[in-house]
Amino acid sequence: MKLNDIAEIVDGHIIVNSTGGSPDIVSVCSTDLMSDVLRFATKGALLVTALNQSQVIRTAEISDIPAVLMVMGKKMEREMIELAMEKNIALMVTHLPAFTVCGMLYAGGLRSCLED
């Protein structure tokens, strides 16, 4: 599923997308614990989180995650946004909570990333 289509489903605003295209999302990982992200085969996954720290972008970079969805309309510090731009990681924000986002994306056909 294209990131643009996901944005439509979850009423998301894409605030960083330095590559310009709409990355193809193959799976979803919903967590606030970064070691949990690192456990999974997350290549091409969307990371759904409420953690608004630069570490989220670092983790995405390390684990080949093309896009991060920040839930609950969490405010992000400038450093986090700048890092996402620098590392070519798309960043999207929605006012919806993680549960609604996961429910809608699961219903839309996306599935969980698998254990690595």
């Binding site: 979803v28 990982c29 919903s30 967590t31 999974f40 759904v48 993680a98 549960f99 609604t100 996961c102 429910g103 809608m104 994306l105 699961y106 219903a107 599935r111 969980s112 990333c113």
Partner: peptide, 16 residues
């Protein structure tokens, strides 16, 4: 043993 995403997906459907 399921992930958070899968558990949420199933529960969302059930509650709805």
């Amino acid at each position: 043993p399921k992930t958070t995403f899968e558990t949420a997906g199933l529960l969302y459907n059930l509650l709805r």
